[in-house]
Design a protein around this nucleic acid. Structure first.
Lengths: 334, 334
DNA sequence: AGCTGGCACTCGGTATCCTCGAGTGCCAGC
DNA sequence: GCTGGCACTCGAGGATACCGAGTGCCAGCT
């Protein structure tokens, strides 16, 4: 563990570096408020901090730059309520959620934009899972002789759709019968726990009903939540190497990777993942700040922010926390 | 108009510059196949081409770079069938559309990625409009006392959803009645031409039915097609100025701007818009190659590619044409 | 024992200067 | 009207020098 003075010096370096993006020298630190020792002492301490892996020196006779480990210490030592949002931002969040309405998807996309605006980093919003959601409506629609569209409305206002391929000619009558059976047996049940539907004498109806029920159950099981990414343009100026920018953007387009990343961080009980911690190679220069949101007391999804490792953690934490809380509340009542 | 020799020189400059991104000197052009004059003559011609606005000289003693006008001439002089796709790419497109199935949205998103891979530029796919689509299924679902979800399936397999706010308590019965009325009167009609529904004695049912019909009609009128953007990461390396990258990415996030851009180009009867031609300030360094696709013989949407003005037009044109044609065909049969 | 001021040293960034060569415009001659 | 020749331009790239922020270390002070 670091003694109090080393910790203060490390914090000072991180803060300075976050602000200026320049290697920080002992003089700057010594001049800082919280440290009341000479620059020579700071130098000695910084040498130790470097040996222990908290700082890095780009080359002799340069200042120090925090390593991922240094950022980690910094983030862990941030007090819980440390970051307060400016009133203007708080107000912006509140009015956003008060005035937003319309389709769930639109709102989540707008939420990701809100978050990007607040923090000036790229943002990610993972939509609610469907596992706990109940079936509000289910309908089969014949599109042509062999394909039937399954449309379901869930209690969280999400829409689930699925294309079913039928191995026989689907008449309107069969489709209607199947729809009725599905509705009478499944409505009101959570996707995770759909009752089995007894067979009828018409095997084609049975086939359709089975396929639909399976698709819904599968959706409840595997649906990881839709992803909405916003503010990617801000990544262009966040790094100086264009290759980094390209790699980060390319990774953000692979939505599966993004959901998994957020989920892993949350499952690990963390709210911040720094640089190489998350093990996604092209995002090694990035940190992620995440917060799950609760709908009716249950974990349903997450919102997050993705920026360079030298991002403003306390502001990002505050913004992400505020947005996730408001979002959860907003989704809790219809 | 340019005489044949000037045209040949201009074409040579454009081709060379597209390939190397370096200002092109008279020697390179003189050495080219299609021009059989000395470099001195080429210099004289290039001076004229510059005066007439086809070329630009970054500074004295540098080669020439095409202007937007130069690119325009080049593109216009490309023979129709000039650009042939390599067989591998043709094959890739074919198998993509043969194997893709599932929800329309997923397919369009994947299409945009396909196009980005083929061309190495950012790509845009605008989904079908709903104007001509017929109503296949319509359903109201009560979400809570005052909100009702309207879900409609269209003949192009698209799903239209809308939240209706009811100024009274919605019982399941009212919702069911309204659904039935909507279904019996509207199914099969194109959104652009929905029949008026006579009132019943229950005014609350009437209100709901009216609201739903209006929402559908409005959707048919104003729905411009969903936008799917792919390959944005490739913009990171397409320009050397990071600000340009940032501005382009930011613009690509504003989907409305993108749809409008594509539509304007197509409405102007063009398939390429170069640099400042389209008048969108932050995209002044970009060219757009677009192609509409036809579903059952009707214009329904478009696919396009967005790259730097020095993009490979003939390849982009070929790829966009191939994809739009296949996409249209794929959407024509369910 | 621990901190500090002092000092010699390092080394990347910036500025300056120079050279090189690709490119140009122009002109006289074929 | 085209071409070879020529003088000129000017940015890119390399060498050199300098500056200063920053370091490590040590002797001396508290």
């Amino acid at each position: 563990m670091l003694d109090e003075r080393k910790a203060a010096i490390l914090r000072a370096v991180v803060e300075e570096y976050i602000e200026t993006a320049q290697p920080v020298g002992s003089n700057h630190v010594a001049r800082s408020e919280r440290v009341n020792v000479s620059s020579a002492t700071v130098r000695n301490e910084m040498a130790v901090l470097e040996q222990e892996g908290y700082l890095h020196q780009p080359h002799t006779s340069a200042g120090r730059v925090p390593t991922d480990r240094g950022y980690r210490f910094f983030v862990d030592s941030l007090g819980r309520g440390s970051g307060r949002l400016p009133n203007a931002q708080n107000h912006e969040i509140r009015t956003f959620f008060e005035t937003s309405h319309g389709a769930l998807e639109t709102m989540l996309l707008d939420t990701s934009r809100l978050l990007a605006n607040l923090t000036n980093y790229a943002s990610v919003v993972v939509g609610p899972q469907h596992e706990a959601a109940r079936l509000r409506s289910v309908q089969l629609v014949g599109m042509n002789a062999h394909t039937v569209l399954l449309v379901a409305v869930l209690s969280d206002a999400a829409l689930e759709r699925h294309t079913l391929e039928a191995p026989f000619d689907c008449t309107d009558e069969i489709v209607a019968l199947a729809t009725t059976r599905l509705a009478t047996h499944l409505l009101g049940s959570p996707l995770a726990d759909l009752p089995v539907i007894a067979a009828t004498e018409d095997s084609r109806v049975n086939t359709l009903v089975e396929a639909a029920r399976d698709a819904l159950a599968e959706a409840g099981r595997s649906h990881t939540g839709d992803v909405f990414v916003g503010g990617t343009a801000r990544m262009a100026t966040a790094f100086d190497a264009v290759e980094t920018v390209r790699d980060v953007l390319a990774t953000l387009e692979r939505q599966y990777v993004v959901v998994t990343l957020l989920r892993d961080v949350i499952d690990g009980g963390l709210s911040v993942s720094i640089g190489s911690e998350h093990g996604i190679e092209p995002l090694a220069a990035c940190s992620v700040v995440v917060s799950p949101y609760l709908v009716d007391g249950q974990y349903q999804g997450s919102v997050g922010v993705l920026g360079p490792t030298r991002m403003n953690y306390s502001q990002a934490l505050a913004a992400v926390a505020a947005v996730s809380q408001r979002l959860g509340r907003r989704l809790s009542d219809g």
